[in-house]
Amino acid sequence: MTELGSDTRTKIAIREVCKTFETKKGRVVVLDQVDLDVRSGEFLAIVGPSGCGKSTLLNCMAGFEPITSGSIRIDGVEVDAPSRKRVFVFQEPGILPWFSVWDNIGFGLGKMPFEQKHEIVMRYIRLVGLDGFEKSFPSELSGGMKQRVEFARALAVQPDVLYLDEPFGALDALTRLEMRAEILRIWGETRKTCILVTHDVEEAVELADRVAVMTPRPATVHSVLDNDLPRPRSADQREFRALKDRVFEILGVRRG
């Protein structure tokens, strides 16, 4: 199915990536020979046991952490530093508490005439449904609204790639469901390449085109599962449950 509709060009090519940390207790091998291709415009989810190195992998892909060996290429170019072309969305929103919503969304836009900046900021405020809150400060917003500001700020710089590291982790269950639908809608409208790290297998199956399952540390990618279920997906569907069970099986979790 994927071959027909969407663009299957490789956006990010991860080849034999190893990452070790030197700590006081010695060297820790976190990533061991990770191979993974991320396709242009796809929504890829990465799941894996806690502490296996999902965030580390994402940090390396974003250029925050240097890799020990191997290569990560985006559009054929080796990643060596963070860039506005690929933006990280944090679990606890990284928006700045001393700036208004407007200033936060305009944070990454650099120098440009006010009119132009205002137009862009307002466009993304509308996209995430925060009309009327442009003058509010983060302390006046709910967790879900802060997360929306974070998304708007990331999207406003028009990145090719969004890295989402458990972006809904700090939210309550209800808001989390709402934000899942929201991120799908935004992804549908913008077609960015999205890479989502999550603990929540159901979240991964609901959102992603493909689910990459990682092994415990030292981590590698065990397998990548295609998910061709039509959207919107429901956890009640038989195929949905089957895919979820498959992921749990790979993770080594027995479910009754």
Binding site: R84, F90, E92, G108, R153
Partner: peptide, 14 residues
């Protein structure tokens, strides 16, 4: 200072 702020600033080229 929360490293998150510094990181996202670097990410946005600030």
């Amino acid at each position: 200072i929360d490293q998150k702020y510094i990181r996202s600033a670097r990410n946005f080229g600030v």
